[in-house]
Every structure is written in C-alpha cells, then in structure tokens.
Design a protein around this nucleic acid. Structure first.
Length: 1102
RNA sequence: UCCGAUGUGGCGCAACGGUUAGCGCAAUCGCCUGAUACGCGGGAGGCUGAUGGUUCGAAUCCAUCCUUCGGAACCA
C-alpha cells in the first residue's frame, strides 16, 4: 500500500477527510499562507459580521458562513489577498439578560444588591461563554477567518473608534437629544426595546375596562354645522382601552376621508339627551342590539375633514398646565390623522400625546400640546384630583388595589361623559421581567438624524450589488425611504457609554471623540473643579460615570447615563476593527469599503443598515459593494427551527454525520441561498452519495490503474492536446467551458449556478461518459501514447475540478488535489509548475483557454449522447437488450453540418449501442418526411404582428417548398402588404417520423432503428451472452484476471450458430484456450435467455 | 395592516419573453457489460395557484385576488 503513488481509500468517508485535512491545514498553516502569499496591492475586502458568543451556534450559521467562506476562498484562488478579521459582538441586552438570569437578579438590583462594577465584570466574563463552541464550529465547518486577532467590541480601542464616529455625527449636527414615546415598564422602571417587547409571551390577552367617552363640542363657526337647536348637546365619542390616559387627553383624531354621522339619543347612564358624532361605518356596532342605546335620529354623513379644528371641552380638567409640543399648546380640538380606521372603536381616536407613539406624532404635527399626568412609577401625579397618587395598574401587587380605570369610568358616567363602559379583552404588551403591563411613556433619548440623510442613503444604496436584488430594492430600499431617526439610547449597563457630558441645566454639552480629548478634559476639570480624577482604565460604566468634566467657566458636567445601541457597535466595525483613525490609517484605507459582506436577511435592518447608515453619514460612502443576504434555514417541512419545537438541527451533529463539505455543498447547490432552505438530512446525504461519491469513485478508478502503470503526470512534457484523441479533446473542451461558466457564476455571486455546473460536469460528462467510454484505454493498452493521453486528460479534469470545487467543498477539494499532486510535488516545485503548492487553497485558479473550447466538437458529442440515448430507448421499447447486435440506425439529415458531425462520432455511437451501421436519410432517399416551423425567435423580431399569419403560411409548406427553401437558402414571404426576405435560419426543419420504422426523438433529433434480428446477428448476440455468462463465472469463482480457462458447453440448438461463427471471439474475450460442446456436461446451469438454460463447465487451465 | 418573498409532476428544484416546460429524489420497469448496486439505463408522470391584461408569442412582464413563509408595525 505504502508504495502506491496515488493513495487509495476503500470507501468515501467525508468526516474522516475533514479530520485529515484540518490537521494538514493547521500543520502547514495553509490559511495564513493563502493570505500572505498574495499581494497587498491586490486585495479583496471582506467584513465579518460579528456573532455574539453568548448564544450557541445553530445550523443557520453554517449556511451564512459557507457563503462568506466560499466567496473569500474563490477570490483567494483568483489571486486576491483576502484578509478576514474575525470579530465578537460583546455588548447588549441578551448578555445582560443572561447574566441577570444567572445571578437571579433584576435590573433594579443593579446598583443595590450588586454594584454596577460587579455586574459589568460578570457580563465581561459571560460574553465569551460559548466562544469555544463557536471556534469549534468555525474550525469544523472549514470557515477560514482570523480568530487570532479578532476585533472585540468591548475593548477600549474599539470604544474609542465608536466615540470618534459618534463625534463625527455630533459635529455634523446629526445627533440630538429628544423626547419620544417608547415602551416603558413602570414596574421595572426602565424603557424596553422593541426586541424585549417581542419576546415570546409578552403580548398577552387581558381584560381591561374600556370606555367610550363623550367630549362636549364647543359651538363656534367651525362646529356650527353639527348643531340643530340652540341647546343641542353635541359630543364627539372616542373609545379607549386605557381610561387612565383620559385625563391626559389633549386632542381627538379623526380620519379626513372617513364618513361621520351625528346620532341623537338618550345617554344610557343618565337618560339625558345627547347627540354623538362617530364614524358612519361603526354605527351598527354601537346601536341596535339589545342593551344598546336607542337611536332617535341619524344625520346625513359628512367627511371627517370637516371636523378639523373643532374645539371641545377638556374631558377631565384638574387644572394642569399643558406642556408644549413644537412650542404650541393648542389643545382640545379635532385633528386629522391617517392612522384612524373604522375597524373598531368609533372612528374618532382619543389622543394623549404622552402615552402613544401615534398620538405623539400627530400631536407634534398639530402642536396640540400634551399632558403627562402619570409619573415614571406608573402612578398619577399629585395634581390629578381624587386620582392623585394612585397607580394606573397594580404594579406593586397590592392586594387592596382598586382599579383606577373603573373609578374614572364611574366618574365619567356620573358626569354624563360616558357613552359606554365595558370589559374588553385585547392583546397588550407586558414587561417580560415583571409580567406587568407596559405603558407607552415619553422618554428622553439621544437620536441620530438618520431621516435627514435618507435620500443620500437611498442613492448610495443603488450602487450596491444586492443578492438577491429584491432585498436591496424592496426590503432595504423601502426601509430607507421611510427611515425614522435612530434612537441610540439604551438605559443599560453593559455597553458603550455615550461620550456626552452636560451641565445640569443642559445648556452646555461636550461630545468626546477620543481618549486623548477625554484626558485633556479631565485635566481641565481637575484644575477648575479642584479634583483629582484620572482617566478610567476601563471605559465602561460605572467608572466612566464618575468622570466629571467642566465647562470653560467651571461648571461641572456629568455624563449622559445612557449607553449606545449595540447595533451602532457592529455598524462601526469597518473603522473600529482597525482602531481607526487612531491607528492603521493605511490599513483602513486599503480595506474600505468592503467588496463583500454576507449575513442572513434578518440583518437587513440590523447590521446591513447600521453599516450603511454610518458609512453614509460619516464618510458619504457605501460600506460594502456587494452583499449576499441568505434566507432562513427551516426544517425539512418548512417550519422555522426553534428549540421549543425541538426541530432545530444541531450543527455539530450534522457536520459529524455527513461531513462539512456535504453540508456546505447541499446548502449552496440545492437552491440559491437567498431562498429559505428546507434543511433535510436526506438531501445532504444524497449530495454525499451522488456528487462526492461519484468523484471519489472516479479518483479511485484513476488511482487503481495509474498505480499499476506507474503513471506520473509530467506537466512540462504532457501530450499536446492537439495530439490526443477526439474524446480527450472533447472532455478538455468541456472542462474549459466549465471553468468559464463556473468562474463567471462565482464572480457574480451566483454560487448555485457554479456548483450545478460542476456537478453536471463530474456526473454526466466526466464519470458517465468520458470514463465509461475510456475504460478500455486504461486497462488495455493499444498504444502507450494513447494510454498516456487518457491518464493526462483524466488527471487534468480531476485536478481542475478539485480547484473549482474547493471554494465550496474545501476539504474534499484539497483532499483530491493532494492525492493527485503529492506524487509530483517535488518536480512541480523544481519547475515552478501549477501544482507546486501543498494545498489547493494556495493555487491559482486555472484560467479557461478559449483555444481548447471547440463548440462544434461539444455539439457532436452531444449528438452522440443523445442519439445513443434514443437508440437505447427504442431497444427498451422493442425489448432488445444491448448485448444483441442490431443492423443499423437511420438518421434523417436535417442540416448541412449534421451528417459530418455525426460521422465524426459514428464509431462511438455504434459501439455504445451495439449497432453495425448508420444510414443517413436525406430527402432524396424519399424516405424522409420533413416538417417545417417558423423560428419564432428570429422571425418574431422581424415580423411582429404578422408573425401569426407567417407561421400559418410556413406551416402549410409542402415537401417541395421545404426542399426549395433548403436549396436556395432564402424565401420571400408575403404577408398582407409586406414582403420579407427570409433565410434558412428563420426556419426550423425537423423530421419526427420515418414511415414504417420505430422512431424516437428528442427535440429536432430523430432516430430510427432497424430491429430485425437476422440469424447472423442472433448468433453474435448469443455469443456475447455466453461471454457475459462465462465472465460472471470467472468472477464468482474468483479466478485471476489473467487465468486461462477451459470451457465445455452443453451441445444445445440455441448456441450452435454462435459457437460455429464466434468461437474465436468468445475465447479471446474470456481467455479460454478451448471451447467444446458436448451432449453431456457436468457443471453449473446458466440461463441464456427466458427459454433456454444449459449446462456449462469452466475450469482453470492447469 | 403594510412590506418582501413564494406558489411549476408525490417531494426538492430549473427554465427569467421565443419551438414539444427541463433535472434530481421517490415510485415503476430493467441491467451486476471487471471504477462505482450507496451503481447504471429506460419509460411514465406536470400545462406552471386563480382571474384579467400587455405581446405576434407569457412559467417568465403588469394588475387584482388567493396560498405559504418571513419581516415591520398597530391594537386608540
């Protein structure tokens, strides 16, 4: 075994190959070399989106990373230097939550039960918890990324770069502090992110008291049309599921295009006559049923726009001053909003700008002012009359809690301000931690003015090549068009602190851009404030919070306590990974922007956006030129994988079971990665068997004979392609076409196309056609040069395939490469040859050679394949096994080159299908009946509207017309008034029938087979059957391939002609020295065919 | 509700304006002809979610609706 040049393995074991190659890579430092050996002036820039090592990796990470890896490897093969700095996302909510869970604390405990310092230390420790698992996956799946020097978002250098970026925004006046209504948990005393709100179980069905309140209209010019008599009591009615917000009401919002009506009725609670205004579409919801008030009269409908500006009396007036919105406090009037629907409620929306995002939006637009009568603890302020100090929900689990909503409703009823009060079940968000309902509350936050840059972002986005394009135009493009300002603030502990210090009155502020600046500022503060502060070693909280800065005139400034949204961290990586601009300026410039990034679609509004936003706002540039967003990995039934459903595929198991390459290949080749992938282990296994198995067998075949013959590739003295036989030229031509197709596809990030092209080549062209047809050349040497050419050709195909496939299947690709090239490495190194590199990943992609691509040859081999296939199909239909020789194939000749093309591959076809001759049918033979059809592609363009008529004319051609066209190569077509000059290529001439023959066809190709079995053919067929049976006996009895044998056959009628005419043939094929027929033979029984069985005796010649 | 995608033989995919809609798996029938039975070959199987439109011509472009998946919101 050890002296074999080409190492063989009995069976394909991809996981074993993974191990072997991993060891090799690490021993030879292949990854490092693949970068170092390429010039810095020719780089391809890739950014790694940092994963968080706080969670375990899943199978979808294999998907995303395969895409990243294959594009990087492909460009490395093309000679690019592809540095791949890894990174870790280390901040953010998930980490904090995990730590809190582990410590059994809640956010309120931070700073009391546990110091911020301890807490953050714990976060820092926890954040890399699964790092080893991630590293393991990275290695096992063959993802090449530099994990030795990763960027880590919690490091001071990283933070400093983020600060610098933030300061750039600040200087451009793109950073501001503002109030926005955000989900807020009074019980926990903290704002919640949308992510927190969307945690499972947070939206819960709860029964709340809902009230429809009546707002008394003030009569003036605008509202006059609503009134009929002098003393009519007209009320606008609005529904709310949070009656506690009613005291804070400052407006009512109506839909401008919605139809409203006024209804006269008696209030059910007071029996007083009132007229209520509501949307016409909702009248039936509130009137008519039992227990509902009776309608006295319904007015004509009018558009909501008419009500714009109508004033009403404040519903519950406790004498609080109205807060300004946009400098105005013009409250208690009707405004218009497009979010109003007639789905439910009354079509008039109670608007409290402090407690709803929409409310605030229209509130700001209309300058209606706001009332914020609830404090951050969730209780009414002291100025709300009898409700002062009462919690709006039972946040403290007080057993004596009395529902404020009910009390407010009672008050409304008593004061004739309630139209309807009822329990209402609805879905409402709850704080995931305290399980208490959240409320929407105006919070101070720092914002990036992203909305003001949206045009530029859209513009730059159009220069980015998105895969798939729809994500860029649609999901991402639309998002940019409707961009809102970016809320950067997080009132958390473990993250990058906002580098902004303010005086107490907020009049002066400083945005720090570097450690140096901070140091200087501290010095200044120490001086004017007589302090002794030093810069903290760790820029996180709480240390940074202790830093007090000072204004020039000596006022102390404290840091804004918020942290920066972690997404800003990851969006900063192009700069912060190099600690730009403080270090590595050239390195940054060389590596910006990225040529390529890839992540899941879920990052569209995450990382893809933050990269783009920061790049646009700070550098007026894109951050990446090409981006691949892959779809989700679902289970095989198309259901999202989740731990709770138990359908999640463990990536390690998948890799162990099928090997990394089978998984990688499956994920890329199965369907374009941007489609959602239904991951199915059986599918992976199929790839393993089909593609890798076939390639493996091809190699094994090669190795078997190459070892026997001692073949060694000698690149420098290889047989010139021009001197090789036709079939070699053909597969080399195919190979070069493949290189072209594959490279083009990969350059366009269409890896699925590339992989499929490789599969096609390996399965159909190389294994099933080339190797099968050339088998004899390897084991029977007619001439040494022919055999050598066969080896060289097969070798070239395999080694180039190993290169091409190595981007997606890095293990098997390298394995195959090494098996093939190790024996010649020394020579190649000495001669500076293509295969001098120890690993395929260090080689340079073979360029396609157009001179070796011969379209005509590919065409004629295609004819050979198709004709063979057609003949086999006729054989099958007529029940003639291939061993039975038949006399001839009839082929209608359809165009001038066809006959010559087929003639060139005639022998191949004949031996392939075991037929004696090919006869060509032309119209002169009288046999063939042609059909003609218009070539729609060429004619359609010329004729346009007349196409249909023309097709009819052409369809009516007689045989004479057809041959006239063929002879003259031109035709004058008259349709209506128009005359067209047509040439032969405007027609498609076929013959799908040969009268009197069994035919089969495939496209324009038609084949007939003479199925008459003459006695002579039968004898030959029988002879071949006998050869087959004898060979089988040789095999089952384990004879040596070279053993000579003696054969004795039962003297049977059926085989007599075969023995008479083909004895020599039988003997040669089976290495029989004698072949006798006797009436009485002791031996085994063979079945010649369904009817005939006979005895046969086979012995090795002594 | 909005946005994006998706819908093609039993299943998974292809064709992206041009003749008769391809392929793989499964099923079926057949083949062990010395690299492969975890292999090879043959045949059968769909009129492309629905309707309408543009076009000489539509699986492909447009519109509306429906399915499935995902995303973003809203729930006054």
């Amino acid at each position: 075994m050890s002296n074999e040049k080409y190492r063989k393995v009995k069976s394909l074991n991809l996981p074993e190959i993974d191990k072997e190659i991993l060891a090799f890579w690490s021993e030879k430092k292949v990854f490092e070399k693949s970068i170092e050996e390429r010039s810095k002036d020719n780089s391809y820039v890739f950014y790694e989106g940092p994963p968080s090592a706080n969670g375990k990796p899943g199978i979808h990470h294999v998907m995303a990373r395969t895409i990243k890896d294959m594009i990087c490897r492909h460009n490395t093969l093309k000679g690019k230097r592809v540095e791949r700095k890894g990174g870790w996302d280390t901040h953010g909510l998930p980490i904090e939550l995990a730590v809190e869970k582990e410590l059994g604390i809640t956010k309120e405990d931070i700073g009391t039960k546990i110091s911020v310092e301890e807490y953050n230390t714990k976060c820092r420790e926890t954040v890399m918890r699964y790092k080893s698992l991630w590293d393991d996956l990275t290695v096992k799946m063959g993802y090449w990324v530099d994990l030795e020097n990763p960027y880590v978002t919690y490091e001071n250098e990283y933070i400093e770069s983020v600060w610098w970026l933030l300061n750039q925004l600040y200087k451009k006046d793109l950073l501001y502090k503002g109030l926005s209504v955000q989900p807020y948990s009074p019980a926990a005393g903290t704002g919640l992110s949308t992510a927190e709100l969307n945690m499972p179980g947070c939206y819960k069905d709860v029964k709340d008291t809902s009230a429809v309140a009546m707002f008394k209209v003030e009569r003036d010019e605008k509202s006059d049309f609503l009134f009929e008599g002098d003393d009519e009591d007209v009320r606008l009615i609005a529904w709310t599921t949070t009656p506690w917000t009613l005291p804070s009401n400052t407006a009512l919002t109506a839909g401008g295009k919605i139809d409203y009506v006024k209804i006269k009725m008696l209030n059910s609670y007071t029996d007083l006559p009132v007229s209520v205004v509501m949307a016409e579409a909702l009248v039936k919801k509130w009137f008519g049923a039992k227990n509902q008030p009776e309608m006295i009269e319904q007015s004509e409908s009018f558009k909501g726009a008419l009500m714009d500006g109508i004033r009403y009396e404040q519903l519950l007036d406790f004498g609080n001053e109205i807060e300004e919105l946009q400098g105005k406090t013009d409250a208690f009037r009707v405004i218009l909003g497009n979010f109003v629907t007639t789905e439910d409620g009354t079509g008039i929306v109670h608007t409290a700008p402090s407690f709803g995002a929409d409310d605030r939006m229209v509130g700001v637009q209309n300058g209606i002012g706001a009332l914020t009568l609830v404090d951050k603890q969730g209780k009414f302020k002291d100025t709300v009359g009898e409700f002062s100090g009462r919690y709006v929900k039972n946040y403290k689990d007080n057993p004596d809690y009395v529902n404020v909503d009910i009390d407010i409703s009672i008050k409304l009823k008593k004061e004739n301000k309630a139209f309807n009060v009822a329990k209402y079940e609805h879905n409402y968000p709850h704080c995931w931690r305290t399980d208490k309902p959240i409320l929407y509350y105006p919070l101070d936050s720092w914002f990036v003015k992203a909305a003001s840059m949206k045009e530029r972002m859209s513009e730059l986005n159009k220069t980015i090549n998105w895969k798939p394009a729809s994500t860029g135009e649609g999901r991402f493009g639309k998002w940019l068009e409707n961009l809102q300002d970016w809320n950067l603030s997080r009132s958390r502990f473990w993250g990058i602190p906002l580098p902004i210090w303010r005086t107490e009155d907020g009049e002066e502020e400083k945005c720090i851009s570097s450690i140096e600046e901070l140091t200087n500022e501290i010095e200044h503060a120490n001086k004017v404030l007589e302090k002794n502060q030093t810069i903290p070693e760790d820029l996180h909280r709480p240390y940074i919070d202790d830093v007090i800065l000072a204004t020039t005139d000596g006022q102390p400034m404290t840091r804004e306590l918020d942290l920066i949204d972690v997404w800003f961290d990851s969006g900063s990586m192009p700069y912060a990974q190099w600690h730009y601009p403080f270090e590595n300026k050239e390195k940054f410039e060389r590596n910006y922007p990225a040529d390529f990034i890839a992540e899941g679609v879920d990052q569209t509004r995450g990382w893809f956006y933050t990269l783009h936003a920061i790049a646009t706002m700070v550098f007026d540039s894109v951050a990446y030129k090409n981006v691949v967003s892959n779809g989700l990995v679902l289970d095989k039934n198309g259901i999202k994988m989740s731990k709770s459903k138990g359908n999640a595929v463990d990536p390690f198991e998948a890799l162990d079971k099928y090997g990394a390459d089978a998984n990688r290949w499956y994920m890329i080749a199965n369907s374009p990665p941007w489609n959602n992938l239904k991951y199915d282990g059986d599918g992976v296994d199929e790839k393993r068997k089909k593609f890798f198995g076939t390639l493996f067998n091809t190699y094994n075949f090669f190795a078997t004979y190459a070892n026997i013959d001692g073949f060694e590739m000698d690149e420098a003295n290889a047989t010139p392609i021009s001197d090789r036989p036709e079939i070699d030229k053909w597969i080399i031509s195919k190979l070069n076409s493949l290189i072209k197709e594959y490279t083009d596809a990969m350059d366009d990030y269409e890896a699925t196309k590339g992989c499929r092209a490789i599969e096609n080549f390996v399965l159909n062209d190389l294994s099933n056609w080339y190797v099968r047809l050339c088998r004899r050349r390897f084991w029977k040497s007619d001439s040494d040069s022919d055999k050598r050419a066969a080896y060289e050709t097969l070798y070239e195909c395999m080694v180039v395939v190993s290169q091409l496939m190595s981007a997606v299947a890095p293990f098997f690709g390298d394995w195959l490469y090494q098996r093939l090239t190790d024996p010649i490495r020394k020579n190649e190194k000495a001669n500076d040859g293509r295969w001098k590199h120890d690993s395929v990943h260090l080689t340079y992609l073979t360029k396609p050679n157009d001179d070796l691509i011969d379209a005509a040859m590919e065409e004629r081999m295609d004819y050979a394949q198709r004709i063979s296939s057609l003949v086999l199909s006729i054989r099958k239909k007529e029940n003639h096994r291939v061993r039975q020789p038949l006399q001839k194939i009839l082929l209608p000749v359809l165009d001038t080159t066809f006959q010559a093309q087929v003639e060139a591959v005639k022998d191949l076809i004949l031996s392939e299908v075991n037929v004696k001759e090919i006869e060509y049918l032309t119209d002169t033979t009288g046999f063939i009946k042609k059909k003609i059809k218009a070539n729609f592609k060429t004619l359609g363009r010329k004729l346009g509207k007349n196409m249909k008529a023309a097709a009819a004319v052409i369809g009516g051609f007689t045989q004479e017309d057809i041959s006239a066209v063929e002879k003259s190569n031109s035709y004058e077509l008259v349709v209506g008034d128009e005359t067209y000059e047509l040439t032969l290529e405007d027609f498609e001439i076929t013959s799908d029938d040969i009268p009197g023959w069994t035919v089969a066809n495939d496209g324009a190709l038609t084949v007939a087979l003479d199925v008459t079995v003459t006695d002579e053919l039968l004898a030959e067929g029988t002879a071949r059957e006998l050869v087959n049976r004898i060979q089988n006996i040789r095999k089952t009895r384990d004879f040596n391939v070279t053993d000579k044998i003696v054969v004795t056959l039962e003297n049977h009628e059926a085989i007599r002609p075969a023995l008479e005419q083909f004895a020599d043939y039988i003997c040669t094929e089976t290495l029989a020295t004698s072949l006798d027929a006797k009436s009485d033979v002791e031996g085994e029984v063979i079945e010649l065919n369904d009817e005939v069985s006979l005895n046969i005796q086979v012995e090795v010649q002594s």
